[in-house]
Deep mutational scan, measured.
Amino acid sequence: NMTTNERRVIVPADPTLWSTDHVRQWLEWAVKEYGLPDVNILLFQNIDGKELCKMTKDDFQRLTPSYNADILLSHLHYLRE
Results as ranks from 00 to 15, higher is better:
E81S: 14
D21A: 12
A30E: 09
I71P: 14
E28S: 07
L79H: 08
R62D: 12
N40C: 05
M55T: 01
K50H: 07
V31N: 05
L63N: 02
L27R: 00
A13M: 10
K32L: 08
W18P: 00
F60V: 08
P37H: 12
K50V: 11
T3H: 07
L52S: 00
C53G: 04
L79C: 15
N68C: 05
S19P: 00
Y34N: 09
S74A: 13
H22M: 10
T56M: 04
Q45D: 08
L73P: 02
Y78V: 14
A13Q: 15
N5R: 10
V23A: 01
H22A: 04
H75N: 14
W26M: 00
K57R: 11
I41V: 11
K57Q: 06
R8F: 08
A13H: 13
S19F: 01
L72T: 02
S19M: 02
L27E: 00
I47A: 02
S19G: 06
W26K: 01
P12G: 06
L36E: 00
L63Q: 03
D21S: 11
D59F: 02
Q25P: 00
V39Y: 04
N1E: 10
A13S: 14
H75P: 02
W29L: 05
V11S: 15
F60D: 01
W26C: 00
V31G: 06
N68L: 02
T64L: 10
V39K: 04
D59H: 04
S74P: 03
E33S: 10
T64R: 01
L52E: 03
S66E: 13
I71G: 05
T4L: 10
P37K: 14
K50A: 13
R7C: 07
P15R: 01
E81T: 03
L43R: 10
N5H: 08
K57P: 10
G35I: 11
R7E: 14
N46H: 09
T3W: 08
S19A: 05
N40V: 03
Y34E: 05
G49C: 01
L63H: 05
P37R: 12
L76A: 03
F60A: 03
N1T: 12
D58V: 08
T3N: 10
T3R: 09
D70A: 05
S19L: 02
I71W: 04
L17E: 14
M55L: 11
L27Q: 01
V31F: 05
F44V: 02
N68D: 12
Y34K: 09
A13R: 13
K32P: 02
D48G: 07
I71M: 14
N68G: 07
L42C: 09
H22S: 03
K32V: 10
V9C: 13
H77M: 04
W29D: 15
A30H: 07
L79D: 07
D58F: 08
H77N: 15
D14K: 01
K50G: 08
P37S: 14
T56Q: 07
T64M: 12
A30F: 03
F60W: 12
Q61H: 15
T64Q: 06
W29R: 11
D14T: 03
K32I: 12
E51G: 12
R7I: 05
N68F: 02
L72H: 00
E51S: 12
M55G: 01
H77G: 15
A13G: 14
D14W: 01
T20V: 10
V11P: 15
L42H: 08
E51H: 07
K57M: 06
N1S: 08
L79P: 05
T4D: 13
E33K: 13
A13T: 15
E6V: 06
N68P: 12
H22T: 03
F60E: 00
S66W: 04
K32E: 14
C53L: 11
N5C: 11
Y78H: 07
S74R: 12
L73G: 05
S74K: 14
G35N: 10
E28D: 06
N1H: 04
N1C: 09
K54M: 12
D58H: 15
L17S: 15
N1R: 09
S74G: 13
P12M: 02
V23D: 01
V39D: 04
Q45G: 10
R8V: 02
T16F: 11
I10V: 13
I10E: 15
D14F: 03
S66N: 15
H77F: 04
P65E: 08
P15S: 02
P15L: 03
T4G: 10
Q45R: 09
I10L: 09
Q45N: 05
F60G: 00
L43I: 05
G49L: 01
N68W: 03
K57F: 06
V31P: 02
C53N: 04
H22W: 02
L72S: 01
G35C: 09
V39E: 08
D70R: 10
A69K: 03
T4E: 13
H75F: 02
Q61M: 14
K32D: 10
P37E: 12
F44G: 03
E33I: 05
W26T: 00
L79T: 12
R80G: 06
S74D: 09
V9F: 14
L63S: 02
W26F: 09
A69G: 07
G49D: 01
G35E: 12
T20M: 05
L36K: 02
L36N: 01
G49E: 01
K57D: 08
V23W: 01
I10A: 15
P65F: 15
D38Y: 04
C53I: 07
D48I: 02
M55R: 02
R7N: 08
T16P: 03
V39S: 07
E6P: 13
K32Y: 05
L76N: 01
T4R: 06
G35W: 04
L72Q: 01
L27F: 02
E51T: 13
L73K: 04
L76P: 00
D21T: 09
V39N: 06
K32G: 07
L52H: 01
